[in-house]
Design a binder for these strands. Structure first.
Lengths: 359, 359
DNA sequence: GTGAAAGCGCTAACAT
DNA sequence: ATGTTAGCGCTTTCAC
């Protein structure tokens, strides 16, 4: 039987309200001696406040909901980790639900979360449509982290794919390449379009003429990258570098090049995108632009908590920049890595883990 | 302003208690006409029960807590997915917290969860010690999924590492190998010891004499696997097959063999352990034994829900068996794959995803 | 079959 | 500085 405020009140010889104030309201004027006594008793009895009761009163629960398409999607765990690390500073916890790309399941998830003691919701890689009646009606704030489809939307945090593509191309140009091919993602995907735009924009900025013959459309998968790369190898003159719009296709590209009897990076350089884990494991290690997953999570959490505190707002979409990670598929010296080119996720987490006194 | 029972009662012309019974207690005798009317009104008004209020009354919350060392550890997301998929059938949700291998943080996490409306807790890969006073005192049931250290403990679900090692060795023997080396994990780790035992036991079962010269201790990492493999290559006669106690070391092993000018699997066969994602991506694809992550999650959830319903119990440790995934590092025909050798996680999820033709 | 009323544990007026 | 009291939304006796 859990310890209640009343039990403590009885044991300490005070009223329930004094106990409540002594324990949870540091600003309320309570006799220091009284406060201390009550705190001692509470600790001794192992008091744990019943948050259900508290939130029933205060209508605030220190819990948020996260709806993700699938916690097994590669980017989802680090986004969630970013969210959670930010929440932790404010003693918030997160309730996590998968929606499996299914609008019905997603609606169920929304309902399940709304009824529950939750102060707000973050949609992670969720296909959710902008308007949702029950969500709207609930009055609870919600944010989108890493939307995959659809147009720009308020209160969302997305990667700056245009900028990222720019980094990749600029790196290749800096190494002397001028015939730079692109293997793009699936049509209709937000990120595929932005990365393609970035590719073209940076070519232009570098004074290189855009050649449609060097453009291939892939499918985000290994196979698509492999096939697209094969097609690219038949062009003459051959491209000297290939920018694949994600790491899986970059890997397919590397294999296709090797299977054709050529070497990476000596004969053809390759840059990927996403900074997936395997890019550090395969041989040669893949140079790539990171998806700022952890930072997107943190930012989304920050936005949400702000809106929980200050009420719903209509904030413009926020773009988070990724970084270039120089590895082995371009032949560049890794020490050329810009100082920003550190995995922020690792850095931030290290800071959090240091147990700094501030928290 | 959320819709309450009282609002519905007023709108439908009944008392709050009748509305409550009509909506949530199918067994209670309510006039069918009344019930239907109330349900209609509730739906029309968009009623969402306030779970905080309900749980304050019933002391039951349809929410569990999950404490994981780090949601970014490779096995954690699939274990969580297994838990969540099982919970879903019973309309349970999960609150997830990271403990970062720090006993203090873990204690905080336990406290945070206990105060909250949570019916039970699952520890995922948590270093948590068996006894915890506040947990004990809370009266809430808890289960361990995939404990990494320490001895056998009640109410825990772990992989059957002994059996898995057996599968690996048996596969190699079936392909004609008799000089089978092992690269083990770090000393002191539960799984390293069990896998080593399984290796020895299966050699014995196959009538092959155990040769201590063929044993190397690794560190679970790529580098350790690489170095251990190099050492193994210097032995004469050379082993014809190497069982690496995890996939990362298996990858290091493959690279070491190739760097020595030998071929995998023609000159030396390699089997890994864990069935990490990259084993399907690297070349050659790595034959491996799976960690039954998803199934461990499901089983842990099942156990927990059982204890929530029936009260705490002292159940013996449950061992879950993994499977052999035949790929390219042993030279075996993949069609030799036993019928059980399907990734259950994939199968189960496919069923869940059935609604979407694309996936 | 339905309603009135009590109470889960907590916080926040409102007294004193 | 402390105590008394009301009430958050719900379920559940206990009446009728």
């Amino acid at each position: 039987m859990p310890v209640t405020l009343e039990a403590i009140a009885k044991a300490a010889g005070f009223s329930v309200s004094t106990v409540s104030r002594a324990l949870t309201n540091p600003d309320y004027p309570v006799n220091p001696a009284t406060r201390q006594r009550i705190q001692e008793v509470a600790r001794a009895m192992g008091y744990k406040p019943n948050l259900a009761a508290r939130s029933l009163r205060t209508d605030q629960t220190n819990t948020i909901g996260i709806i993700a398409d699938d916690i097994l999607s590669p980017f989802v765990p680090p986004i969630i980790r970013g969210i959670q690390d930010y929440l932790k500073q404010y003693d918030y916890l997160s309730l996590i639900v998968n929606s499996d790309w299914d609008p019905d399941i997603e609606q169920d998830a929304i309902n399940a979360l709304i009824s529950r003691p939750v102060d707000g919701i973050i949609f992670v890689e969720s296909s959710h449509l902008a308007r949702n009646e029950s969500l709207q009606q609930s009055g609870k704030p919600y944010i989108f982290a890493h939307r995959l489809f659809g147009s720009t939307i308020q209160n969302s945090v997305v990667p700056d794919d245009h900028y990222g593509a720019t980094l990749a191309v600029r790196h290749l140009v800096s190494l002397g390449h001028r015939r730079i091919a692109i293997i793009n993602g699936r049509e209709g995907w937000h990120s595929a379009e932005r990365r393609y735009e970035g590719y073209q924009a940076e070519l232009k900025a570098q004074g290189i003429e855009f050649d449609p013959a060097l453009v291939q459309w892939g499918d985000w998968e290994y196979e698509g990258g492999y096939n697209a790369a094969r097609a690219l190898l038949d062009i003459s003159p051959r491209p000297t570098a290939i920018f694949a719009a994600n790491d899986l296709m970059a890997l397919g590209t590397v294999c296709a090049i090797q299977d054709a009897g050529l070497r990476v990076p000596q004969d053809i350089a390759v840059v990927g995108y996403d900074n997936r884990e395997f890019t550090r494991i395969v041989r040669p290690k893949i140079t790539t632009v990171s998806m700022p997953v952890y930072e997107m999570g943190r930012t989304a959490a920050e936005l949400l908590l702000k809106q929980i505190a200050e009420g719903r707002q209509a904030l413009d979409e926020i773009k988070i920049k990724g970084q270039l990670f120089i590895r082995e598929t371009c032949g560049a010296d890794p020490s050329q890595q810009t100082p920003e080119g550190v995995d922020m996720a690792t850095v931030t987490r290290r800071v959090l883990l240091r147990k700094d006194p501030d928290r």
